[in-house]
């Protein structure tokens, strides 16, 4: 069971969280401008590294805030990353 550091609540057990996959995949600023391949990549393709991986979690059974961590997918060692602020889109 992973222990995950919520930036707002501190260290909590994995069962309090939901996984959100790769971090920093922005919703395209203008989806209509993307060709089908680029849009398909946005929808379906994510990095899948063995090693350090910036990923998103949401503290569903706690503060319900989304945040980003960096975890080594080979060892599950985690280090916290600051919550990412996003630029406006659309």
């Amino acid at each position: 069971m992973l222990q995950i550091r919520c930036p707002w609540c501190g260290d909590r057990e994995e069962t309090e969280f939901r996984y959100g996959g790769q971090a920093h995949v922005d919703y395209p600023r203008d989806p209509a401008a993307l060709d089908d391949r680029a849009w398909g990549e946005y929808l379906f393709v994510r990095d899948n590294p063995k090693g350090e991986f910036a990923e998103r979690w949401v503290h569903t059974a706690g503060c319900r805030r989304w945040f980003t961590t960096v975890r080594d997918t080979a060892t599950n060692q985690m280090r916290a990353e600051l919550p990412s602020a996003r630029k406006p889109v659309m």
Binding site: G20, D26, Y27, V58, R64, A85, R86, V89
Partner: peptide, 9 residues
């Protein structure tokens, strides 16, 4: 909440 927090904060 996911859209609000991660895309449109």
């Amino acid at each position: 909440e996911e859209w609000l927090q991660t895309e449109w904060p």
